[in-house]
Design a protein around this nucleic acid. Structure first.
Ligand SMILES: NC(=O)c1ccc[n+]([C@@H]2O[C@H](COP(=O)([O-])OP(=O)(O)OC[C@H]3O[C@@H](n4cnc5c(N)ncnc54)[C@H](O)[C@@H]3O)[C@@H](O)[C@H]2O)c1
Ligand SMILES: NC(=O)c1ccc[n+]([C@@H]2O[C@H](COP(=O)([O-])OP(=O)(O)OC[C@H]3O[C@@H](n4cnc5c(N)ncnc54)[C@H](O)[C@@H]3O)[C@@H](O)[C@H]2O)c1
Lengths: 208, 208
DNA sequence: TGGTCTTTGTGAATGCGTACTCAATCACTA
DNA sequence: TAGTGATTGAGTACGCATTCACAAAGACCA
């Protein structure tokens, strides 16, 4: 049913559905059944149907889902139809890699501001964006920026987060290995690469 | 020692515990109670106690957990005490960022081999590692490499994964937005950055 | 237009992980 | 050596997510 509680796990899967749909659309497929779709994603059909059903009835029985329409619908659910703008803070190795990555556009996202504290980097242009001084972070306020990406060293992360939030950002993608303290209305997703790599070794066959 | 089923979520938390313990050790703390520890991690005490209890009794009632000892124990549980070696394939923007990152060592992990297909990159050295031709990937076999890191474009990911597995790797950290098909005994963790960013917009206040 | 086939949408059951609680345990002190 | 206080370890209850199964619904064809 609509407007009831939606599992967080469902939200995590939606962007994956989008990516698979992009592929299907490129292949020229007009419709896809939950069965075929599940095969592509290595998931099971009822999972997909249930996930989608939380938001309404998008499919047609006997046929399946219209690929283009479903893509648009998921995009709308996630709020990507309004092409949110993101500010990146910390033009280091990781920040640079993110900026050079072309894959974000396909979903309707854009990084439109860059900040750093290093005087050598300030003023530089990456793509067509000029690197600004982190001290001017508050100037973001009028620029309708809804997302922040933190790629500064861990000790600076909390301070940057506070400033981003003060500037009106209410979603933060954090790469620093630090657990940010933020107000209720702000959502933080931390990607902790070292943690994932560490976890991976657990699953290796024990060699003793 | 409990050899019953351990929740995957528990395994995901263990590396975070390690990081927090590193901090405590640096601060000179000898012991920590589950209460203090939970506060630091913004988690709740019973969760931590339960997680640890799956592997045995590490704490002393009335006192708490010995920080150094617990760090070593978690390290052992994860298999990081044997300092697993990792091979990275795809020395692009992301691959370079990972190689320059010093944070992996603290957990007991090392990237000790690099492969790429670009002739300009082959032969180059990064840190003290020489970049090898991806066609020579099979030479990994004798080098006791247990982990692979994939930072090549998505269309090449499956092929690289197959070759890594053939060379004896059985844990893969994959950054390519592609869902790899691997044998039963191989564990894959995919970090899909674009997906996380896309998901983030869902939680933003709907502005209409 | 009626019948059949396919596939959806969802109520119900199952299974898993988290949160709670409390007796058992250990250090410390007198 | 016995008493006190703090904290663990785990059995239990709860809640959420996944899986299952089936009735309702549209498409297609005779
Ligand atoms: N590179 C990786 O592979 C990797 C892996 C795991 C985690 N991380 C984390 O990601 C973050 C960035 O990593 P990196 O490798 O890009 O580091 P980096 O040192 O290359 O880049 C950090 C950048 O932030 C800038 N900076 C520092 N303090 C700042 C401040 N107060 N305000 C604004 N800018 C500031 C620096 O000038 C630099 O450009 C770190 O927190 C790191 O722990 C990185
Ligand atoms: N950079 C990011 O921020 C980012 C974000 C999300 C996902 N990703 C994914 O991570 C992967 C790497 O991204 P990137 O930005 O570093 O890309 P990149 O193009 O900078 O680097 C790719 C590297 O792989 C090498 N390569 C290509 N084909 C190869 C092959 N068959 N064998 C060996 N090496 C090969 C190239 O020579 C290059 O050095 C991609 O799959 C990308 O989709 C990157």
């Amino acid at each position: 049913m609509r407007y009831h509680k939606i599992p967080d796990e469902t939200i995590k899967r939606l962007p994956r559905y989008m990516r698979a749909l992009l592929l299907l659309i490129k292949e020229g497929r007009e419709t896809v059944s939950s069965g075929k779709f599940a095969e592509l994603l290595r998931a099971n059909p009822p999972q997909i149907r249930k996930d989608l059903s939380y938001f309404g009835a998008f499919g047609t029985p006997g046929v399946g889902y219209d690929t283009k329409r479903l893509f648009g619908q998921i995009q709308a659910i996630l709020g990507l139809d309004s092409t949110p703008k993101a500010a990146l803070v910390g033009l280091g190795n990781l920040g640079t890699a993110l900026l050079k990555y072309p894959g974000f556009k396909a979903y309707g996202m854009h990084i439109t501001a860059i900040f750093d504290s290093n005087p050598e980097k300030i003023g530089e242009t990456v793509g067509d964006i000029k690197v600004e001084n982190v001290l001017e972070l508050s100037t973001l306020k009028g620029r309708n920026m809804s997302l922040g990406i933190i790629t500064v060293p861990a000790p600076a992360a909390q301070e940057i987060a506070d400033q981003l939030i003060a500037a009106g950002v209410n979603g933060i993608l954090n790469f620093a290995p630090y657990y940010l303290k933020v107000p209720e209305h702000v959502k933080v997703i931390t990607i902790d690469i070292a943690m994932e790599l560490a976890r991976l070794t657990y699953y290796l066959p024990t060699k003793t």
